[in-house]
Each structure stands twice: as C-alpha cells, then as structure tokens.
Amino acid sequence: MDAQWTFQSITSTLQVTGCHFGIKPPGWSYPKHHHHLTELVYCIDGEVTQQIGQENVLMRRGDLLLIKSGIKHATLNGASIPYVFFNLHFDLDDSDMRRILGAEPYRRIPGDAASRSRVPGYIGELERLLCRGIADSRTRGAASEQHVSLDAGQRLAVQAHTLLLVSEVMDLLGQPDGHAEEAAGPVPDASHFAADVAHRIEDLLSQNVYSDITVAEIAQAMNMSRYQCSKVFAHVYGVSPRQFLSRLKLNEAKKLLVTTDKPVAAIAELLGFHSATHFSRQFRRWTGQAPQHYRPKQ
C-alpha cells in the first residue's frame, strides 16, 4: 500500500502582549478603557465585576472571559478578598479565527464548563513558565510588579501553550454545553479608529442624558456630519445615536419614577423633554404603559 495525506500550508502569526498574572486587593479598580487586541481574562481566585459597555459581568473563580478588541470595559474588585487572575491580549492573523473571536462584544465561559476542559492546565503551565514564584508571592502578599525575562526556548513554549489555550477556548465557544454567554452590543469588524470615535460619541451621549441635545449637535461637537456620526456609531454599536440616547433616557426615567417622588412633569423637564405630554407619549412607546402606572404602588 502506498498512501499519502497532505495538509494545507499554515502560515499565521500570533501576537501576544500584556500577558501576566496578577493579584489585586479588595476595592481595587481599573478605569474604563479598550484594547486593540482580543483580551482573555481568567479568574483564578476571588471575584470581580467587569463593566462592559452598559452591562456588569460578574466573574467568579474559574470563570473565563473573552473581550473583543475595541470594546470599552472597566474592572472593579468589590469583594472582601483579593482578586487573582491571568490576563492575555492576543491577535491571530487567521481570518476564520478573527471572525469567530470578533462575533460578539464579549463571551463569558462559566467555571464549571472551563474546569472540564484543558484551560486550567494550560494556564497552569503558563504560570509555571511566566511566574515561577507566583505561589510564594501570594502567601507573602507581594505587591510589587515583576517582569519575567524568558530565553528563546521559554518564549517558544509560551507561544505554544498560548495557541493551545486559544484553541481550547475556541472549542468551548463552539460547544452547546459550554454555556458561553453572549451580549448584544457593538457589531464585529469595526476598525480601531471607528471604535475610538464611537466611544467618544457614547461619552457625549451619556453626559447629556439630562438635556435635549440632538445628534446634529453631537456631530458638530465631533467635527463630523450628522450622517458620518450616525454611520460610525451604528457600525460599532449596532444602533443609531438617537436610539442609544433613548435607551439611556428610558433607564433614567425608570430609575427616577421608582426611586423618587418627583412629579412626571418634573422628570420630563429634567430629562430634556419639551413637555410632560411628550415624555408620557415617548415613555408609553418605550414600555407600553404610562409613567404614572410604572410607579410602584405605595
């Protein structure tokens, strides 16, 4: 028998930046920011809240989180114990991989699913390669930042285990029992420049919830046409600036109706509506009920 199996040639580049293990005390936080690469976060111990866009995602021990490039997020350790984590920023110039990794703003894989995979083992091996003394530093409570130098063989091993880790995560994302959570939000394939512009538009919209600002005024503040402003924002967030602002106003209206005794007319004025009638009509369109009926009964 004379047989041969030939596989296609593979030429792909793995870029790894910001690869580190860390320990952060209770109350630690990191402000809202975004990266130009995919971010992988693995909670080794403790718990932490990741604020991604307008959502709060709680990570507990063993949970794994993938955050798409260009997505704004912030981190807060609101627990009473230290947060121990592994963090990796990476990019692969494989079009199929990029399409899958960029399909959603974020994907969370719960600890029970991750624990049944090779993810903990691969991260443990990266820990051995990168932070040979991390176990001792945890018990000592070391707070200093340590940079680890690697020789050529160790760098190759880190790349190999990073690829194995990403491969395992891709398998988990494709498994129906992996329970990966998806979030509605920014659409894939937004350029870094478009993401930066859209985030600045979001900041302006969020700062002007309590006003009657228009999309045209936002565009003028950004030195853009209204068409450009709406197009870039919708490309990144999947909704128009006007729809996004309406969501913000609805959330604020609900909060004011439930937590305060302000009259409907006062809430309408506070949120920048021209009249209580206009506000009531819009609120009914949003929720299907009048503002006064949304309030809890005393």
Rank of each mutant, 00 (worst) to 15 (best):
Q292S: 15
Q54M: 05
C229Q: 04
A221H: 09
R116G: 00
V169Y: 01
C229N: 01
L205C: 02
I109H: 03
R99T: 15
D136R: 09
N77M: 06
A234T: 00
V119N: 02
K254Q: 15
D136G: 01
I52C: 07
S206F: 01
A216D: 10
F85W: 11
T17L: 11
L92P: 04
K231S: 07
H293Q: 13
R107A: 07
R138M: 12
A184S: 14
I109D: 09
P26E: 15
G53I: 03
K68T: 00
P105M: 04
A253H: 08
M59T: 09
I52Q: 06
D96C: 10
L163G: 14
T277G: 11
D196F: 02
L64C: 15
L76G: 09
Y42W: 09
D2M: 09
K262W: 15
Q243E: 08
R60V: 13
G70I: 09
Y122I: 06
I109G: 00
G288Q: 02
K262I: 14
A103F: 07
S80N: 10
R116I: 05
V158K: 12
R99E: 15
T260E: 13
K32Y: 11
W28D: 06
D212Y: 08
D177L: 04
K72G: 13
R132F: 13
V148M: 13
G78F: 08
Y30I: 04
L172N: 05
T17S: 15
L40Q: 07
L58M: 09
L205Y: 00
S95T: 14
T259M: 06
M1V: 10
T277K: 07
R128V: 01
Q207L: 01
D189R: 11
E269I: 01
D203N: 03
T260F: 04
S144R: 14
